[in-house]
Amino acid sequence: MTAEALVVDPAAARWAATPGAGCPGPDAPLLVLLHGYGSHEGDLLGLAPHLPGGLALAAPRGPLLGGPGFAWAPLATPGRPEPGGVRAGADALLAWLDADARVGARPVALLGFSQGGLMATQLLRARPDRFAAAVVLSGFALDAEEPGDAALAARDPRVPVLLGHGDADPVIPPGATTRTAAWLASHAALEHREYPGLAHGIDARVLADVAAFLSRTLPVD
């Protein structure tokens, strides 16, 4: 499959909800969970019990094979992937979102881990007015100028973004994280959290901050 032909398989996407009072209605906020390189659509659904109640969840599968699982873009120099592949992955995700009737006009937020975090930042740049909030965990932003960057920075109020990562991450270079934090600070309403001793992963501190962030930024009843 070429980069120009990437397709997110709607049949592979998993839909769920965070625990709460009943099933979220059609207007409930949707949180799109974007897995990392080599993982799969079920990976981040395990976070559901730790997230605010009343959220609809959608977990798509990356359109590429990668490692033992799937990917959104080809693996390259850590923190500096080839831009064309990243844009193709984001375009495929947007096409999937646009085509699924369950998305509708509800508020949509993004939560991405590692390469999924890269995709979350890229979706914000591709559709500056589309998303209500984003969580980027152990991820980074593409090191390139994008056509939507100026519109994203001009959004008023700016889209809230939580960037969380460990200071002992052996996968994402510190330079990529520093660059991403600076870029987000100039284009979004950034909340930046660095976790001492955390490697490339998610722990209780991260989950607490994510839950608090989503509770503040999404209209959950």
Rank of each mutant, 00 (worst) to 15 (best):
A71H: 06
A105L: 07
L163E: 11
P170Q: 06
P170V: 05
A204T: 13
Y37G: 10
A204K: 11
L51E: 06
G84N: 12
G148Y: 08
E145G: 12
G139P: 09
G53E: 08
P196I: 01
G89H: 03
A188Q: 08
W96C: 05
L207T: 13
T18I: 05
G69R: 01
G22T: 03
E82I: 07
T178C: 08
A17T: 04
A144S: 13
L142S: 09
M119F: 11
L152I: 04
G166E: 02
P29L: 03
A168H: 12
L55R: 01
A153L: 05
Q115A: 14
L51F: 12
F113V: 11
A88C: 13
D221N: 07
A92M: 05
D9A: 14
R158V: 02
A73F: 15
T18F: 03
G53N: 10
Y37K: 00
A150E: 15
A56E: 02
S215W: 10
A176W: 08
V103H: 09
A151M: 01
L93I: 11
A48Y: 01
D143K: 08
F140L: 09
G104H: 07
L110C: 08
A12G: 06
L64I: 05
D167W: 01
R155C: 08
D43K: 04
T180G: 02
W15L: 08
P19N: 09
Q115I: 05
L207P: 01
D98S: 12
E191H: 08
C23V: 13
A99M: 13
L31M: 02
A73S: 15
G67A: 10
H50P: 02
D149Q: 13
L137C: 14
V7M: 12
R155H: 12
